[in-house]
């Protein structure tokens, strides 16, 4: 329906996070999750946030989504401070978050129903979006009948149904296998190209962040701060073959270097206690074992 030309200037969807800090708990048990983070997402820009486990990425996203209030600083969307969740910000979660009691189409219609749209309009929008995700023929299935990749695709178009200005994604492909992940990344760039909305994308996959983003923020180990900001000058539309280009490889190397330091820092205190040394392993809340 709406054909958005890539050259058209997009003005809405400016996320501005200003010197934000988040502390959970108080007293002895206080955990400083995020400390003095400033970042922004320009309208229509695709920005990734990458960092070691437990550095506060999800916390940051929850604040922009409006689930959590910052201890200091603020998050602002198009000049308005964010205080609560709203349909102007679509969120795609790491866990599957489709409503199991609704059919695929009703899931996509959910946001429009909450907004009071009539059945006809909802139906048309949902079917268009499902077609875009390549899942129209599954419209009457229930989420439990679908594969993980399908569920996440529906999660993405469901978040887009209310025409939000920004899309917030917290490791949306984290639970998928590598093959599906690569396909999902292409689908996502494809969808983003059409909607041209601002995206804040969290990942711990370096290749993924480069392939998708215009800009990447690297966070330090907890308490999370911004360690580096890296521009991705690769042309668009991005193609799977680009991942073999020297430009891409260089970016991967650069990011790997930045992140390894932080991963080591993240686990150093815990490993020291046990007389272990790091081999590029990271210690997260889930324990030792994930390798960057």
């Amino acid at each position: 329906m709406t054909v958005i030309d890539a050259d058209t200037e997009v003005r809405k969807g400016f996320i501005d996070v200003r010197s934000m800090g988040v502390t959970f708990g108080s007293g002895d048990s206080a955990v400083v999750a995020v400390k003095d983070v400033s970042l922004n997402v320009q309208p229509g820009e695709f920005v990734s946030l990458i960092g070691p486990s437990g550095c506060g990425k999800s916390t940051l996203l929850s604040i922009v989504a409006g689930f959590v209030k910052p201890t200091s600083g603020e998050a602002v969307l198009d000049g308005k401070p964010i205080t609560r969740p709203g349909s102007d910000r679509g969120v795609v979660f790491q866990q599957y978050s489709l409503f199991p009691w609704l059919s695929v189409r009703k899931n996509v219609e959910f946001g429009l129903k909450m907004a009071g749209e009539n059945q006809n309009k909802r139906n048309i929008t949902a079917r268009s979006l499902l077609d875009l995700a390549g899942l129209l023929s599954f419209e009457n299935h229930y989420p439990d009948q679908l594969s993980g990749g399908m569920k996440q695709r529906i999660g993405i178009v469901r978040a887009l149904a209310t025409s939000p200005q920004v899309l917030l994604m917290d490791e949306p492909f984290g639970a998928l296998d590598t093959q599906t992940r690569v396909v999902m990344q292409e689908i996502l760039t494809n969808i983003w190209q059409q909607f041209r909305i601002s995206v804040l994308f969290i990942t711990h996959d370096i290749e993924e962040s480069i392939f998708l983003s215009d800009r990447i923020y690297v966070m330090t180990a907890r308490p999370g701060r911004i360690k580096a900001e890296i521009k991705v000058p690769l042309p668009r539309p991005r193609k799977a073959e680009m991942t073999d280009s020297p430009e891409f490889m260089n970016l991967v190397q650069e990011l790997k270097g930045l992140i390894r330091e932080e991963s080591l820092a993240a686990m150093a205190p815990e490993l020291k206690d046990r007389g272990l040394s790091g081999f590029g392993m990271k210690v997260g809340p889930k324990g030792v074992g994930e390798i960057f």
Binding site: R127, A133, L135, M150
Partner: peptide, 27 residues
Amino acid sequence: PEPASHETPELTKPATIEPVAPEPEIV
């Protein structure tokens, strides 16, 4: 027409959101 397997849908679609009439699929 829709590919038989939906795990890998067409990636190069025109930059248009295609409206789809609310009627049942032909199966």
